[in-house]
């Protein structure tokens, strides 16, 4: 097996070439090689959703994706949700509704919610819950996260 593998991928709009261990996970490449530490590891087993990122437009648990599988792929992390200092509607709604407490699930939650709103522009409460079912939070009882996603979805729909 090769010692290192050359990996080319686009993250948050920027091209990157990194040399990675064959066992590296997409999460490791993002956090350690690219120092995009907004993406968190909560369990490393695909159960908590803290490491959610968009891979070619679909939400994945980056702890379960071998980095080599992201060859040539386009990845969006929490750092890529805002445009410069302009927060996305979802991020702005999280501020207004106090959607983050400890903040550790927040990046994954935002990424999953972004994916949800893209897939399902006018989501019902059930659809939002379905879209966030893979993201665990222990601080908020999900209440203010749901409020924030509702608000952001309404704003997006009104555009």
């Amino acid at each position: 097996m090769a010692e290192r593998i050359d990996l080319n991928l686009k993250v948050n709009g920027a091209d990157h070439s990194v040399s990675v261990h064959p066992f590296a996970r997409l999460l490791d490449v993002l956090r350690e090689d690219l120092r995009l530490t907004g993406t968190k590891e909560g369990c490393g087993e695909g159960e908590c959703g803290a490491c959610s990122v968009l891979l070619n437009g679909r939400v994945v648990n980056s702890c379960l994706v071998p980095a080599v599988q992201a060859q040539g792929a386009e990845v969006v992390t929490v750092e890529g949700l805002a445009e410069g200092e302009n927060l996305s509607s979802l991020q702005a709604a999280f501020l207004v509704h106090n959607g983050a407490q400890c903040g550790f699930c927040t990046p994954g939650m935002l990424v999953s919610a972004t994916d949800l709103i893209h897939r399902c522009p006018n989501p019902s409460d059930d659809e939002i819950r379905d879209g966030l079912a893979g993201n665990l939070c222990r601080c908020t009882g999900y209440a203010k996260i749901l409020d924030a996603v509702h608000t952001a979805a309404e704003r997006e729909a009104a555009r």
Partner: peptide, 21 residues
């Protein structure tokens, strides 16, 4: 009052123990 750390937390800039190298 909005949380002081809200922006840091929604942008992924808030640094936790594991984020320091």
């Amino acid at each position: 009052t909005q949380r002081l750390d809200a922006v840091a937390k929604v942008t992924g800039r808030a640094m936790y123990t594991d984020d320091f190298f």
